[in-house]
Design a protein around this nucleic acid. Structure first.
Lengths: 377, 377
DNA sequence: GGCGATTTGATAGACGTCTCTCAAAAAAAG
DNA sequence: CTTTTTTTGAGAGACGTCTATCAAATCGCC
């Protein structure tokens, strides 16, 4: 009984009106008498009509044109973000979404504005960018918005800018989670937590630090917090500032690094003398170096913002705004804690998917390819 | 420059062949000379042609008919799973996916088989069920498969059954993660871990226990593991078995409960005398009770399998198999660790979405509704 | 060159929705 | 009542793909 789902024509017949009237109702074209609207609505409810999005998209033949602007450079996290975006491109094209991926120098507000100008001239529907706290950027975002272009901030928000939405984790919550984890790991004993940030002027770094401080002081009064190391996300600076600290004093029991430049931290940790206890170490974002360190047992946990989820949400949100409808309800992105054991497998393109075991066909279904992989544990 | 994306007609023109030939190539109809195939492939590459899935779906006018069979009863996790499925129904209908949600008594293999029989007669394309270790179920799954119906196991696999795929977490990894977390929380001190399971015959419970044991014995030799409590997922049994243990001996420093019946555990924990230190407690799955306990500080962490992701992956996988194509690459589902701080907000239908701040329109865009919510912090 | 087999081209209808236009009907205003 | 305005109906064409049919062209082979 392959019962066909109801179409708008079915609704029209059921409501006793013409297709045109139904169309006027469902597409808000106006000029319909109240009683007709009610009859149509009732018919829709009765039949359980649901719009066929494939047909709707096809008829409009709209190609969404979006752009993502991601900082270039050596930052592994942003390289990863870019890789995820590239991988999504083809998939998106199938849904008639044309995604341009652009790179600019990190934290260069003027370059960002210039790029946005060029983009807006080529005609795009929406853009996602990594927000910075910068007046000219905020102003440019306002310009784009009033030109009808959707603007999202990704990973880091742009304070005071009238962006449509911010897609990213709550960095204060991330910091609180780190604080909780560090507190738990002390098992009731005292200790001293050393925070490392890139710059306090970066909103996300400041918020993470603040969140950690909040939780530790409130819940773990036996812990105190050492003066913050400012590493500018550069591994040499981090290393140079850390070496003397670990050499001269042995009271650091935990390290929380909120940003980049962790290569320096890891070098220091790996070179600690055998006698000296390694502190509890919590980092952010699963990048190759951090992954390796976790696998080696040099660090204890990574707090990740799941960039692939961020991107999926960002695109879904861009599309909703471009369509002028409510965004789909997506689950909020929460900072996620990874240990050595539940570290996700590397590489988004990996064919090995532990949480997803697939069998081959038992017998039939000769034509066309079917799945023939077996990946048990 | 709203450059239209290339269509199959464009490909035909570019390749210098007719539409019919291109169609024969892209849809594997055969009867095409090798040189033509090559020219078409080249044209597709050159133009960057990507099939318009909206058009493809529309032309086929196929309604996928899937079913999900979820155990009924008081188990909060399965109630949650069902709620997520219900919420997805409408969204799925828009994509012409007709999802039936069925309930059966938990762990009743015969009832399951009966239901599967009825379902297969009504004509469905695929079914997702919670696997059990049961021969008649395995046989029924084989029957369905050879009748051309896709079968997925969800949450718990069905050993020896020729299901198309298992969608769920690796329960051994979940147990290892729990072990790591418990180990870390002891901060190097010794202790004694008390495991609680529903039944050792349940594959997921056994695997979680085994994973925890593995990690604790390998990495935290100062911890030992107390005899396992078998609670049959029933809170009275759990409570009755736990009370004397906590009354008579005060050496339990951690509790790991792999399954249900946690209401009993929580009652015991809440009634511990003030003098007695509360052990580290790790549970599975964010259900209302567990959430509340985490918020109250009665337990320390919850390991979650993110049922909403499992369902999304299951549906995507069912669809892929029904289409006889490779499943989309989805990220594997990994057990996720939640503390009080990064606990996701309750209710899937909540309009408050912390990780997703949305602004109203600054000025224009009069027609139709737009988003007007501001949910900061 | 003639035969059969293989390969190609041309074309048409279907899917459900959107967007139009134009005329007809009904309702409200004078 | 007529006139104006509002509301409704009927229908056509487009979107890109799938599926089909039938005739025409090309090929291999003797």
């Amino acid at each position: 009984m392959q019962s066909r789902l109801p179409t708008l024509s079915d609704v029209a017949r059921c409501a006793g009106v013409s297709y045109a009237t139904v169309d006027r109702v469902v597409n808000d074209r106006g000029g319909v008498a109240e009683k007709s609207v009610i009859r149509v609505r009732k018919a829709i409810d009765e039949l359980g009509y649901v719009r066929n999005v494939a047909a709707a998209n096809l008829s409009q033949n709209k190609t969404y044109r979006f752009a993502a602007i991601i900082p270039t450079g050596t930052n592994q996290f942003f390289q990863q973000l870019r890789a995820i975006l590239e991988a999504e491109r083809i998939r998106l094209l199938a849904d008639r979404i044309d995604l341009r991926i652009e790179g600019i120098a990190a934290f260069d507000g003027e370059a960002l504005c210039e790029r946005l100008d060029i983009l807006s001239q080529t005609g795009i529907d929406g853009v996602a960018l990594v927000g910075t706290d910068d007046d000219i950027v905020a102003q440019k975002i306002a310009e784009l918005r009033s030109a009808g272009i959707a603007v999202l901030t990704l990973v880091s928000d742009a304070p005071n800018a009238p962006r449509d939405a911010y897609i990213g984790i709550d960095n204060r919550v991330a910091g609180q989670t780190a604080g909780r984890l560090i507190g738990l790991c002390h098992g009731g004993a005292g200790g001293r937590v050393l925070p490392i940030v890139g710059a306090l002027s970066a909103p996300d770094h400041a918020e993470r630090l603040e969140g950690m401080r909040e939780t530790v002081t409130a819940l773990y009064p036996d812990l105190d917090i050492a003066p913050v190391i400012i590493g500018r996300d550069e591994h040499e600076i981090v290393e140079n500032k850390l070496r003397p600290i670990f050499k001269n004093s042995h009271d650091i029991t935990a390290v929380y690094s909120v940003g980049g430049g962790n290569a320096g931290l890891l070098r220091v940790l790996r070179s600690l003398p055998d006698g000296q206890n390694r502190p509890i170490v919590v980092l952010h974002d699963i990048v190759p170096q951090a992954r390796e360190a976790l696998e080696d047992g040099v660090i204890d946990a990574i707090i990740d913002q799941r960039p692939e989820v961020e991107i999926a949400n960002a695109l879904s949100c861009l599309r909703s705004i471009a369509d002028r409808r409510m965004p789909d309800v997506t689950d909020p992105i929460l900072p996620t804690v990874y240990f050595k054991e539940n570290l996700p497998p590397p590489g988004r393109d990996s064919s090995v998917r532990p949480g997803h075991t697939v069998n081959g066909t038992a017998s039939g279904h000769a034509s066309k390819s079917r799945i023939l992989k077996e990946i048990d544990q």
